[in-house]
């Protein structure tokens, strides 16, 4: 099996006495879109910056693209769009992409060609020769996305890529991210916009107070409790309700909630209801929304914190 794109065994970062990252462990599979979620100040940016040597971690053990974190030459295969990216005002979009290409040691000819393609992809072709200072926020972000890809990276880190971008632009950015995945790149997205991450990410991690509170595939995080809900036609008859509640099931009006390993486990309950003449209108697997998972995770870390 190929090594994971990012494999953090242990990562801590202290700013003075403040712990921005505490013993973070994380694994990002290759070729996936990974969403790192968390409230403001959770440490998302610090985590990405630590991987990219922009911040010097206090303790760090792990690999990036199979090499030790901090290995310089590996960074040639990494793309990065910083949070609040601020490129020099005096450069044009094309020059910004060219500057990154130069630092990433992309041969000049190849850089030119790729810059052309990428500016087209992000919809900045007609604006490529204007100065960055004249761009709107969203346009800057698009150019930032283009420069992050100019070295044909194996992994791309995007720190809040949709920050300041209009709804149309957000959809485009999502498509660009999906395209990166199709091209086989790993995409690491930082965001606090759950809805957006939910749409593209294969895996997510939720961070709060410098710790990873939850991580896994979207699927596993949202259905983890194996809860099923049965709805009856009209309220559940009183004697059936008392019986079910006696067995520890939750009943409310026409809803009966039950936990079971899988759908098979619920069939018995259905039989029981049917035998009592209760008409079943609907049976469904209950899922948490990502928002619920997120809030719960953040709260649980918050509680530990205050203890």
């Amino acid at each position: 099996m190929e090594a994971a794109a990012v494999e953090i065994e242990h990562l801590s970062k202290r700013y003075g006495r403040f712990e921005a990252l505490r013993e973070v462990a994380l694994s990002v599979p290759r070729g996936s879109v990974f969403g790192l979620l968390g409230p403001n100040g959770a440490g998302k940016s610090t985590l990405v910056k630590s991987l990219l040597t922009i911040v010097r971690p206090t303790e760090c053990r792990g690999t990036l693209l199979g090499e030790r974190i901090g290995h310089r030459r590996t960074l040639a295969k990494v793309g990065y769009l910083p949070e609040h990216a601020r490129f020099p005002e005096y450069l044009t979009g094309r020059q910004i992409v060219g500057f990154t290409a130069g630092l990433a040691k992309v041969p000049a000819k190849q850089a030119k060609r790729r810059a052309e393609e990428l500016l087209e992809t992000v919809g900045m072709k007609d604006w490529a020769d204007r100065k960055n200072g004249t761009y709107s926020k969203g346009m800057r972000q698009r150019v930032g996305l283009a420069q992050a890809l100019v070295n044909d990276p194996e992994i791309v880190f995007l720190d809040e890529p949709t920050d300041g971008v209009d709804p149309g632009g957000r959809i485009e950015i999502r498509k660009i991210i999906e395209r990166m995945r199709e091209e086989g790149r790993t995409v690491f997205v930082n965001s606090h916009l759950l809805g957006e991450v939910e749409q593209v990410a294969d895996e997510v991690a939720i961070m709060a107070h410098g710790r990873i509170a939850e991580s896994g595939t979207l699927e596993s995080l949202t259905r983890r409790d194996n809860r099923y809900e049965i709805r009856t036609l009209g309220p559940v008859p009183a004697e059936v309700r008392a019986e079910l509640e006696g067995d520890g099931l939750e009943v409310a009006g026409d809803r009966i909630a039950s936990t079971a390993a899988d759908a098979k486990g619920v069939q018995q309950l259905i039989d029981r209801l049917r035998s009592r003449g209760v008409v079943i209108r609907e049976m469904k697997e209950l899922r948490f929304t990502l928002e619920e998972v997120f809030l719960k995770a953040v709260q649980s870390v918050g509680k530990e914190e205050s203890r």
């Binding site: 960074l75 040639a76 910083p82 990216a85 601020r86 490129f87 020099p88 630092l103």
Partner: peptide, 15 residues
């Protein structure tokens, strides 16, 4: 070295 501007250069394969 301003916020949001140093990151791009520092994350490149240059010491």
């Amino acid at each position: 070295m301003a916020e949001g501007s140093a990151g791009v250069a520092l994350s490149k394969p240059i010491s």
